[in-house]
Design a protein around this nucleic acid. Structure first.
Lengths: 206, 206
DNA sequence: GTCTATAAGCAGATAGAC
DNA sequence: GTCTATCTGCTTATAGAC
């Protein structure tokens, strides 16, 4: 059972994991109830312990997979050998796809990280740091040629990440402010995903 | 006791509230422990119940005050009768000050809102919605004159909010990616607060 | 592997002395 | 108003039948 890959998991184990993912991502570790996970998976509560031993261990699985889904792919996108404009278009387009497919992960991860900043601090994040450096360097070189907007490279990257990620984190607030129902907000996101890569290029390069 | 204003609160009550604010904002409602709040306030656990009856009630106080601190001031900034450029500079500068003075509020509120989207949905948020409309209208009018970037007004506003708010929510991740310690990140924020209003104007108007 | 019943521990809440 | 001691209920976790 321990070293099984995803596709040879029993259907029960998979159902549990998916229910746990949903509940943990919306309620957080402490807000989640094992009973709610069991109900959502339509199995008995004691099965949770049979497959995952404890709430903490089940959570850890969900948390790590959430990180893996969102972090490493990004990095590779930043390291392809492309001119800045192409790289930016490529990076933002693909990254928006990833977040859109996993819209609950950013808030979930950031909340848990905020409660416990040491948890996984060294997991893969500083590896990300190393890989981001070349991209920042590329930004600086273009800046010297006068090709980018006049901001430090780090600030530019934060602008880009902000505009991509925040709408998913802030959804409940934005939806009320703009008086949108679920469908309307989904269309708003659709529109954003279409317009943003182009806008990011325009507002970064000059 | 019930209807006391802030400044006639007993010192104990105040200490409790401030400790509760810190703990709730970093751990969330369910992650917070009454014992931890008591320890941080350096008082006995039963005092919490003496002053606030229950965890839930204490939380509600903290939550509402958090919302009040961050939301209404913003709105007024958007309704002053100023040309767009002035309004943008004014709004972003002041709003960044507010968040900077309350950096934990956005993640806290968004996490709680995510767990319980109905809580306070109608509190003051749709009032905000009404007051944001004139600003969106102003954006649209400038767009017709060809004075703004070519994006729907709502997308522009989301860009602005994203760039202001996200760095505070994403702090733990950004700090690791950029390999910054606390002081370095504080300086990064300082730099950002100085550069961002100007950049937002430049990337919104043309 | 799946269920029912139950144990064990913890955190919020209260009683009551001072 | 503040403390110590205690209760109660909920939630995780386990035992054991099938």
């Amino acid at each position: 059972m321990k070293e099984e890959s995803q596709d040879e998991q029993s259907s029960t184990e998979k159902k549990i994991f998916e229910a746990a993912r949903d509940v943990f991502q919306s309620k957080g570790l402490e807000g989640a109830r094992m009973q709610e996970i069991a109900d959502k998976a339509k199995i008995n509560k004691s099965m949770l312990h049979y497959y995952y031993r404890s709430k903490e261990k089940l959570f850890e699985k969900v948390y790590q997979l959430s990180l893996i889904k969102v972090i490493p792919q990004i990095v590779s996108l930043l390291n392809e050998d492309l001119p800045l404009e192409q790289k930016l278009l490529n990076f933002t387009t693909k990254y928006l796809e990833i977040i859109r497919a996993n819209p609950d992960i950013p808030l979930f991860v950031l909340h848990e990280l905020n409660k416990n900043p040491t948890r996984l601090k060294t997991f893969m994040l500083n590896e990300v740091g190393r890989k981001v450096q070349p991209f920042l360097e590329q930004l600086r070189q273009e800046a010297q040629k006068g090709n980018t907007v006049d901001l430090p490279a780090e600030q530019i990257l934060v602008n880009i990440m902000s505009m991509m990620i925040f709408p998913f984190i802030g959804r409940p607030v934005l939806q009320v402010i703009f008086e949108m129902d679920e469908d309307e907000f989904d269309r708003f996101i659709e529109e954003r995903v279409n317009l943003l890569p182009e806008f990011i290029v325009r507002s970064t390069l000059k």
